[in-house]
Simulated assay, not measured.
Amino acid sequence: MLRAVMASLTAPGMILGLMVSIVPLSGLSGPARAEPIPRPWAGAIAARVNGFKDYPYMARMRQKVGALIVGFQVGPDGQLLKSWIERSSCDKALDHEALDLLQRASPFPPAPPGYKRASTSFRLPLVFAMRGREVWLRGSCPPSS
């Protein structure tokens, strides 16, 4: 388990998105793998997501915190093609907000001219944190009771 201590946050209810960590999804094959994703485009997508962050009201009131990894696929025109939770925060409200965040941020900036992939997949770690609360990126969630 990866443990992140968020003691340095300045505001309760703040979402920290580790936007510099946006990376291409692994597992690509064929010619698409040879063409790297332009860093400025990935950075522009991350900045777009960062501008639409929100903390679900009920999760904030219940002081829920969590870390998750969301995956998403973007077309060359910047349209969100699909999104999914790669690793859950173990809180349905936080997971749902991560997917809603991508919907609100879409459309993303289009791919740069000359970029030839039909679609590009990314993974993005998101952290919902509050001052003084520890956040864990879990390997798996406990069974619901």
Rank of each mutant, 00 (worst) to 15 (best):
P36V: 01
H96G: 15
L81V: 12
Q63V: 14
A46W: 00
G27N: 07
P38Q: 02
A105M: 07
G78P: 00
R138A: 12
S119M: 11
S119T: 10
L9N: 01
D77Y: 03
A46R: 01
L99N: 00
A67S: 14
G43Y: 01
Q79M: 10
G139F: 05
L28M: 15
W41I: 00
R60T: 11
R123N: 08
M58Y: 13
R39Y: 05
W136L: 15
V65Y: 02
Y57Q: 11
G43V: 04
K92E: 12
R133Y: 08
P113M: 04
G75D: 08
S140Q: 11
G71M: 05
G30A: 11
L9G: 04
V135I: 08
F72Y: 13
R60I: 09
K82T: 11
V135G: 00
K53G: 04
Y57R: 14
Q63S: 13
A46I: 01
P110F: 03
I15D: 02
F128N: 01
L81K: 10
A42P: 00
R3I: 13
R60P: 03
S83I: 09
V70N: 00
A93Q: 15
P110L: 05
Y57D: 10
R104Q: 06
V20W: 13
S106L: 06
D100F: 08
Q79V: 11
G132P: 05
F72S: 02
A34C: 04
G114S: 03
E97A: 09
M1Q: 14
K53Y: 07
V23F: 06
R131C: 04
P143V: 09
M130H: 07
G132A: 07
A34H: 09
S106R: 04
G43S: 08
P142K: 13
G75V: 03
R104K: 15
K64I: 14
M6G: 07
P142S: 10
E86A: 10
G75Q: 07
A32Q: 13
M58I: 15
S21D: 14
P40M: 05
S119R: 05
G66A: 07
Y115N: 00
R123F: 14
R123D: 08
P56A: 01
R3E: 13
Y55H: 02
M6V: 13
P107E: 01
I22F: 03
G78C: 01
S119D: 10
R62P: 11
S88I: 07
A98Q: 05
S8F: 08
G139S: 12
G43Q: 10
P142L: 11
A34V: 06
W136E: 06
L28S: 14
F52M: 08
S8T: 14
L81R: 09
Y57A: 13
I45A: 01
